[in-house]
Design a protein around this nucleic acid. Structure first.
Lengths: 116, 116
DNA sequence: CGAGTTCGTTACGGAACCGTACTAGTTTAG
DNA sequence: CTAAACTAGTACGGTTCCGTAACGAACTCG
């Protein structure tokens, strides 16, 4: 499966996907929240607040607040690390998995419709 | 040029591009602003506030405020319609063109990383 | 032990954005 | 010429997010 995208196709794809997310009145996650969500779902655990902050290049409170918001939506889950009780481990949820899957299919569909 | 993307590849691409935008301390545009910008640069003029609001499925004040913010960054320009002075036409700028071009190349590069 | 370090969270003042409702200017219809 | 329709912008109250600085809890190690 080839993945080449011309800059013009890339732009069209980016526009279409963003438009879909804007029109879906859905939760409407910010760029930071989406990045955080996908990091958790694409990379191997464990995920700590500090580690995520470093990976995204943002401060810790940003991660804490993002976890608050996304936890309220049941997209991720917090849990204390039993080995080192200072740490908080971020875990996946069923709702989050479904959302990520929906996102993947939606982008994939938009990309498939691109070539003339 | 084939444009097929598996859901997994689409997800990885979406994550990588978002991560790049989060780390670039840049202007940090919202999803709505990006969609508005790309609509102006991808679709044929003229672009009015009302028309853009309808296309994005949002209210007029959202467009007005987005134009305020992006005009301050010199990404788009406002101009009164000479024929119907009630209308405001949204125009492209050099700075905006450069930003869109940068965005297109960045996404295209991320997409090109996998296949070869 | 106890001082120091590391972790996540909270406090706080400020900035950005939202939706509804209203305003001011322009055009159109009767 | 006036009243209605239509445009974009503004006002307002409320919510959310930000960055810096502090905080309490948990671990480390001399």
């Amino acid at each position: 499966m080839s993945v080449g995208l011309t800059p013009e196709q890339a732009l069209r794809l980016w526009h279409d996907v963003n438009l879909t997310m804007v029109r879906d009145d859905k939760p409407d996650l910010s760029a930071r929240q989406v990045t955080l969500l996908l990091t958790v779902y694409l990379q191997a655990p464990p995920h700590t607040v500090r580690g995520l902050a470093a990976k995204l290049g943002v401060s810790k409170p940003v991660i804490t607040r993002a976890l608050d918001a996304m936890g309220k939506l049941d997209l991720v889950n917090r849990r204390r690390d039993a080995n080192d009780r200072r740490n908080v481990l971020v875990q996946r949820t069923v709702t989050g998995s479904l959302y990520v899957e929906y996102l993947a299919d939606m982008i994939s569909e938009r990309a498939g419709g691109l070539p003339k």
